[in-house]
Design a protein around this nucleic acid. Structure first.
Lengths: 363, 363
DNA sequence: ATTAGCACTTGGATCATACGAGTGCTAAAC
DNA sequence: GTTTAGCACTCGTATGATCCAAGTGCTAAT
């Protein structure tokens, strides 16, 4: 019954569009009469009723119960997003607000993502999600040891993917810049480039031998390095504006809302969701209802877009709301914010400058 | 009417305790009859009624309406927490679970706090909050510049409070270790120890003059330093288990819950709340209802405890739930978790080892 | 092909009633 | 003097009946 025959005539499209937009606006089923009175259709309610009846048969609409108006089906929304919707044009006001917010804080990617989420939530009145996928353990290409105090050193690690990690290590013996220089060299020759599995006990002992004094220094350092290598950084998810959801009657059911909240906090599912989608698709992705493999989110829509920097996906920002959501506005917002972030990332320093990747060398 | 005369006799205390515990258990007003049938009181309901009536007059109990049972008043809870409650003894099971979780991930304070929150939420079935107060702008005592690639350097700043901040800076000119060494020295002589206001334009120009080449390097570096100095790090708040709140009918009202969520996300109020309390008190703090200055939280109770490392408050973890909360269990949990974290912080490195503070030198 | 008209369905709001839980008080019992 | 039994009273909620408005589907007329 879906997409049978060949699609909708113009009038049906217009009606469907009007229904969806009306429903999104006030959240109630839309009746035939409503469409005639408020709107530009020069048709009677009866005619519209007939069309609606057909639209229902074709799967674009649904009836909550006999005497209610129609509501867009998931399929209907999907069609709307794919074909009917026109891009939302931000108002002067919104644009100004956005620019101001975007410019305010940049710097580290983390902060950037967080700001972006808050922004998205504030602008759309839906819940917004920042996703930072975990980098799966990469090798370390270079070490630097920095002398901080007599007892503390900082370990700086340049990762193969171009990012940098740092950590402080507390040593039990008296440190000196010279000592660190020696250890740094040893690390760079012996450990750089290796994966966690390759750091065997004999290797560690060899290093301790080379370094000579103070295995109370080598020990903690190696331990820290192993931790970083093994880390498989879990990825991070930040929510903003969860409270907005409660504005929509769709989330009135406390129990279901609780479940949803639980999933959102769990991170895992969200991360999977983002990584499941087409890796190369850099447009906003719209996941409507049951297209979503996470059960608890099947009454919601998730719109998200990946953010790249130097060819690598470094995160994503998304918006979550009821299936009845202002797709046009949400999609534009996500798109706009993502673009801006990419822009900022290109301009500012802060993270991988594209470094040792294959693609970038052709310039 | 509060605390008039001189306090409760034994029987009143017992009855009050029983009422509170029953109410916490099932969330409904407690009637006189209920107390007699289920419980160990060898009294009739009438007697209990009389006692309850007096307890009400004294301000420990309240009646939602004439024909409902009694409910503990805020004052009643406060009394319970202060005098009646006995420490919750964790079950073998809970202890095991906790230990396992605590041991799993430690390392950075951030991670630690996050794990702790999740733990607290899981154990208590309330919402848990990790609070990392912002350090109010401190001076930088020392700089280190680390060569990372031809174009990127890492700026390491030792702060006056003993912590370390790092940031990457992208330079437009070709970097070299020698270059950085020179700049490092200039920074250490010219800027170290200064506050943000003291970094004037003339000073910056002086530095550029001293450094000579490439103000395309000095510019970004100084800018970054100023940002860090001005930063007044906002502090951070992490929530876990928000969904648990929805289990309690107290939070059924979607609108109020939305407001509460909004406040929790805002961070600001929470941070204030924690910093408002007695700085030196390291026991768990219990803020019940209207004792809380945040309006939206006046129907809730917040239990939290500060975490110190080397004398400095580095964060707090707390639990938020309905006023009717299992105080005994919650307080013990918070206490236990906090103690464990302190323990871990003492054992592992990772953060300020107490550094250049006054108190610590006396060892 | 469109429209007017009408019978039918149905969820929600409104109202009245009944019920149950709990109290406060008085008078009797210990 | 304290405790208890008994009873009238209060009040929130659950239940059910009724009504209404909105919307549909269908048929017949335009």
């Amino acid at each position: 019954m879906r997409g049978d025959g060949n699609e909708l005539n113009e009038r049906k499209k217009l009606i469907l569009k009007a229904i969806i937009e009306a429903h999104v606006r006030d959240g109630e089923p839309v009746g035939s009469k409503y469409l005639t009175q408020n709107k530009q259709f020069s048709l009677s309610s009866a005619t519209i009723r007939n069309e609606m009846s057909e639209l229902e048969e074709m799967g674009y609409l649904e009836q909550p119960h006999t005497s209610a108006g129609r509501v867009p089906s998931e399929y209907g929304y999907r069609f709307y997003v794919n074909s009917l919707m026109q891009k939302y044009r931000m108002s002067q006001n919104e644009l100004a607000r956005m620019n101001a917010l975007v410019k305010s804080r940049l710097a580290e990617v983390d902060k950037l993502l967080e700001t972006a989420t808050q922004l998205a939530a504030a602008l759309t009145n839906y819940t917004s999600i920042a996703i930072k996928p975990g980098r799966s353990a990469t090798a370390i290409t270079k070490f630097r040891l920095v002398f901080i105090t007599d007892e503390v050193l900082m370990l700086v690690m340049l990762m193969a993917d171009g990012s940098v990690r740092t950590g402080q290590i507390h040593a039990d013996l008296q440190l000196s810049p010279g000592l660190l220089e020696r250890l740094e060299m040893i690390l760079n020759t012996q450990i750089a480039g290796k994966r966690a599995e390759e750091i065997s006990m004999p290797l560690v002992m060899e290093i301790e031998r080379l370094f000579g004094e103070g295995d109370s220094l080598v020990g903690p350092v190696i331990k820290y390095i192993c931790e970083v290598l093994a880390e498989n950084t879990g990825g991070d998810v930040k929510l903003s504006g969860v409270n907005h959801l409660l504005e929509y009657p769709e989330y009135a059911d406390a129990h279901k809302f609780k479940e949803l909240l639980g999933v959102l906090e769990e991170k895992r599912d969200l991360l999977r969701l983002v990584s499941e989608t087409d890796e190369s698709d850099d447009r906003p992705q719209v996941i409507i209802g049951s297209e979503n493999s996470v059960e608890e989110m099947q009454d919601s829509t998730l719109v998200f877009q990946k953010i790249r920097s130097g060819g690598k996906v470094i995160g994503a920002i998304g918006i979550l709301g009821p299936r009845r959501m202002d797709y046009s506005k949400v999609i534009s917002t996500v798109e706009y914010i993502t673009d801006n972030i990419s822009e900022l990332l290109r301009a500012s320093p802060g993270l991988p400058p594209g470094g040792q990747d294959d693609d970038e060398h052709k310039t």
